[in-house]
Design a protein around this nucleic acid. Structure first.
Lengths: 235, 235
DNA sequence: GTCCGTCTGTGCTGCAACACACATATAGAG
DNA sequence: CTCTATATGTGTGTTGCAGCACAGACGGAC
């Protein structure tokens, strides 16, 4: 695949690199495709590559000892998967799962680390993204504590929508429940209310966002805090 | 204060710096004291200094628009306050409040940033600490979602204990409730159960940990996940 | 078409935490 | 010692979600 095509459906972090750095990295970027549910890394697992999603969305999930799970963050074409590889810890105690099938660009860990050590725009962007992700994680903590399932579902839908280029999400309520760390029935009820209010419609694993501004009116402040931070840090 | 005394009651991050880097930084470290409840920075506020607590404990709180709050992380003598200053974002959307009165060493932002840009052990330690803090934040999200108030209180007590050198915490239930983002009455009930079981005792703003291993038996896995990551990344 | 697996809807009961109201206990000021 | 502000204890009712059970509905395989 020629370089120009690589960046056509691109990753917004990489798109912000100056041409000089991009030229160095381009030969090391490799296109990969992910299917729904694929596990990119396990909790504590080492990664051979860092991933820059282009159309895929990746969830960072903590898996409880008893089997339940909860999402702590999500990465799309505005971010990357593999923070630990440049933060120095090598691994993190969570799992990365493909939440929405799609593509990513990947780079070998060693190449990435060498470029990171140069201290240029690449390092600066990766650190700023990491800070944005921290905001997302900490706001998730707040939201889990203080807000209703319905508000959290709105937040989740909007965060997903922002990382896709379509209003249709391929996603069952069961999977959403696993992400949010709640029961499937709870998602059914909350989604039912949103549908009744004309904000979304859904059938059997396909959710369509009908009224984005309606969702934004229903969601808690957490969504905007996270979005504003992403825009400020990476916009 | 002579340098040797500065490090006597020290900060464990700084203690891990090689002598060469420490020599460069020592002239720029300044001792400061914090009182309970003091606000180190406001949400979105710029900081002139980065802080390395020695005996103080600092909570990172998100303040909701409606006035309620929730803790997203905590920093003691194993960490620092001011992540955003080297991650590149300058500010974060939360507030840093003194949870336990005590001291810290501080360094001017500019000095810190110059040393960080050197890419040596200082940078490596700060990034590893940041990763540890991310684990703490994300585990807080999980814990808020999936665990009971009593378990979370245990987690909070243990995290505080680990950052003090005494079993007595000066802390009212009201303040703990603000940290955990729950009602004061809920804390009263959970603390009452812990006291009845002989794990803690408390009177009017003073909590004493009587049975640390009992707390560890009651707490959810979140505490150990965070502690193990801190040990692994910074130990 | 029919079948079967998957996805969604709904009706319980139960519990943890909330909101509000108010009672009691304690430390420190005077 | 008394007063007061602050800290903690308790009761009642409500809410949001969990846990469990099962009914219906849809879609692809055959």
């Amino acid at each position: 695949m020629p370089p120009s095509t690589l960046e056509q459906v691109g990753n917004r972090l990489l798109a912000r690199l100056p041409e000089e750095e991009m030229e160095r990295l381009r030969p090391h970027l490799e296109h990969v495709s992910f299917t729904l549910g694929e596990v990119i890394y396990e909790s504590g697992g080492r990664q051979s590559h860092i991933y820059f999603p282009t159309t895929a969305i990746i969830s960072l999930l903590y898996m409880m000892e008893n089997g339940s799970s909860a999402e702590m963050g999500v990465a799309g074409n505005d971010g990357l998967v593999g923070i630990a590889l440049f933060m120095g810890g090598d691994t993190v105690p969570n799992r990365a799962v493909v939440q929405s099938a799609g593509d990513a660009l990947r780079m070998q860990t060693k190449v990435m680390q060498e470029e990171f050590a140069q201290g240029g725009t690449f390092q600066r962007l990766l650190l700023r993204y990491t800070q944005a992700l921290m905001t997302q994680m900490s706001q998730t903590a707040v939201c889990n504590r203080l807000h209703t399932l319905e508000q959290q579902l709105c937040r989740w839908l909007l965060l997903s929508r922002d990382r896709l280029n379509t209003d249709e999400l391929v996603m069952t309520q069961e999977l959403i429940a696993n992400m949010l760390g709640v029961r499937r029935e709870g998602v059914t009820q909350a989604a039912g209310r949103l549908q009744k209010n004309g904000l979304i419609s859904y059938v059997r694993g396909r959710i369509t966002i009908l009224d984005r501004s309606g969702l934004e009116a229903t969601v808690c402040e957490c969504y905007r805090v996270v979005k504003d931070e992403y825009d400020r840090l990476l916009g």
